[in-house]
Amino acid sequence: MFITEYFKTIFRSVKSLLTGMRLTGYYFTHPSKTLTQEYPDNRKELKLADRFRGEVVMPHTEANEHRCTGCQACELACPNGTIKIITKQEILPDGKKKKRLDTMIYNLSMCTFCNLCIVACPSDAITMSQDFEHSVLDRSKLRKILNKPDSKLMEGVE
């Protein structure tokens, strides 16, 4: 009948609305379920994934040695022209001339963190760091030189 149908509709609607309100009410009364991470405060506990792609870095040993041979594979692999490698000729003790890395310029502002350079590197010279706080006040600060001054190629890496 029309009247019963009318009241049934009202009853069903109110019930469905109360179901939703019960859910939000449940979470209102259970603040422990809060998901918020209070970011700048939890900096110390903050643990990023090991593979997180923050920025490209070149690890150096304590003796200020890196593994980059200056082969430019990463420069070729980069789709955006983020990496620029400048090489120099170095005379080895045995008198041979050898191409060595002079500067590795990495432009963070152009990087899309696609990991292709890391994959392309044959000597594992570069890697992705977990640092993600990249904001600076001057764009020029995003243009980074990855090899430290006076750093050398590690022995045995060709």
């Binding site: 593979r51 997180f52 990991n115």
Partner: peptide
Amino acid sequence: NELMEDTCGARLTMNYMVPGGVMADLH
């Protein structure tokens, strides 16, 4: 997304699939 971050290294623009397979093994 955190799972993706573990394995692929990124949350949204993963770039995990490469011709011939995937870029890295599973975490």
